[in-house]
Design a protein around this nucleic acid. Structure first.
Length: 423
RNA sequence: GGAGGAAUGGCAGAGUGGUCGAAUGCGGCAGUCUUGAAAACUGUUGAGGGUCACACCUCCGGGGGUUCGAAUCCCUCUUCCUCCGCCA
């Protein structure tokens, strides 16, 4: 959520920047400012009323103490009207504050200046590419065929147990999954990210903290009995560790990594592009999250991008990095880099990581602050990225590493797997 | 799941109707002393709204109530602890 102070100070710049997202925020911002004005005016009135009531109460106390009960009783009568007034003003204040909050939730984050304008993924800007696209034989198979051929992933079995989008990994497939998780976690730990295990269900407040709520509840599985949500990403519990915290400036940066399964309803996604591992309701992901001092957050973002690069380099997968355009940028993000691996047998790019800087947008919702040198509270910056999402990396490995004699395991994974070929 | 107890500032912990945003200790920060550090001593140290700055207002787990007045009394929810039951 944008800071109301920022909207007051830089209204025009914010409206201008939001145009990159192809929205005209003018009416919304205008409404916000009017409401903010009203809220503050009401607050002042209420404060004055309460101040008067407080004063009277004190006087009554004194009078009773000095035995002047009659005068005290006379004063009591005056408080009735004040009470009535403050109640009404309080209700007005709450109503204004609630509406203001609702409006603020509707304004997306302001894109970073480097974000290109654009409407769709077509307009994303390729900023980097690396790795050779392998020459496959003419009878090369997409990963879902390979999974069946070597009996390592069973989609039908998942349908039987749960439903579409819940695959069952078997034998070397399961082992390869576990190897990837361990490998990613090890790489992240080496890079200074502290490994964490988090709950896979979160409460409503956490959903609001990172921005899944109130807008995207349809994307999360909701356990209504206990009012908990299955996490769509480890970002939610990891970032919410900091909800309501005031951290010490000298403790920056905070770097965490966690492996979790991720649950997404993916309502409305069907068709060829969601075949196999391309889009699932449950998948595994290793996430990295950072909390930074505002001045350092873009250096940190670059650092995260470099880190993910080293992993893909070691896996020897062909990939590219896109800077998302305004139209494709997530609601809460200021700048996002997507990593895509080339799926040779499908002849398409698959998104495997998304690395974002949210600046103060999440921190403002989370009330995640630090004390600056002057002892003032400031909002921190939050960032996160996948490092990495498993299914599409797996798809990339299966397809790009397929040979006549089976699927070769990338060298760095062999020690984790305990085998070098799936055949 | 049943019975009882508890929730106060970074932490510990006092406060059971008015002068309490809250004693005290620890921790943090600044200073004195010291070549420097430690110790000792002195000062300072919750958050939010509001203001040019003050004033002022709100917050003692969340919500509601009683009262002129609530950290303190009542209701309710949540969480934690103890005992019992169940159990990976």
């Amino acid at each position: 959520m944008l800071r109301i102070q920022a909207i007051r100070d830089q209204k025009d710049a914010i409206i201008e920047a939001l145009k990159k997202r192809n929205i005209d925020a003018t009416p919304l911002i205008q409404e916000v400012l009017e409401l903010d004005e009203k809220r503050r005016a009401t607050q002042t009135k209420l404060d004055n009323t309460l101040a008067e009531a407080n004063k009277l109460s004190k006087e009554i106390g004194m009078l009773f103490k000095s035995g002047k009960a009659q005068e005290a009783t006379a004063l009591k009568e005056k408080t009735g009207a004040l009470k009535e007034e403050s109640k009404q003003l309080g209700d007005e204040l709450n109503a204004a504050a609630d509406t203001l909050q609702t409006l603020l939730y509707q304004i997306p984050n302001v894109p970073h200046e480097s974000v290109p304008a654009g409407n769709s993924e077509e307009d994303n800007e390729e900023v980097f590419a690396e790795g050779d696209i392998p020459e496959l034989t003419s009878n090369a198979l997409p990963h879902w065929e390979l999974a069946k051929k070597y009996d390592i992933i069973d989609f039908e079995l998942g349908v039987k147990i749960t439903g579409a989008g819940f695959p069952v990994y078997k034998g070397k497939g399961a082992r390869l999954q576990r190897a990837l998780i361990s490998y990613f976690l090890d790489k992240n730990s080496e890079a200074g990210y502290t490994e964490i295990q988090v709950p896979h269900l979160v409460n409503e407040a956490s959903g609001y903290g990172t921005g899944q709520l109130p807008d995207k509840e349809g994307q999360m599985y909701h356990v209504t009995e206990d009012d908990l949500y299955l996490i769509p990403t480890a970002e939610v519990p990891l970032t919410n560790m900091f909800r309501g915290e005031i951290v010490n400036e000298k403790d920056f940066p905070f770097c965490y990594t966690a492996y979790t399964p991720c649950f997404r309803r993916e309502a409305g996604s069907y068709g060829a592009h969601v075949r196999g591992l391309n889009r699932l309701h449950q998948f595994d992901k290793v996430e990295i999250v950072r909390v930074e001092r505002p001045d350092d957050s873009y250096v940190a973002l670059d650092g995260m991008v470099e880190h993910v690069k080293t992993i893909l380099r070691e896996l020897k997968l062909p990939y590219r990095i896109l800077r998302l355009c305004g139209g494709d940028l997530g609601f809460t993000s200021a700048l996002t880099y997507d990593f895509e691996v080339f799926s040779t047998a499908q002849d398409r790019w698959l998104e495997i990581s998304s690395v974002s800087n949210f600046e103060t947008y999440q921190a403002n919702r989370l009330k995640l602050r630090y004390k600056d040198a002057n002892g003032k509270s400031q909002l921190a910056h939050t960032l996160n990225g996948s490092s990495l999402a498993l299914p599409r990396v797996l798809a990339g490995i299966l397809e790009n590493y397929q040979t006549e004699n089976g699927i070769q395991i990338p060298e760095v994974l062999v020690p984790y797997c305990g085998f070098s070929t799936i055949d």
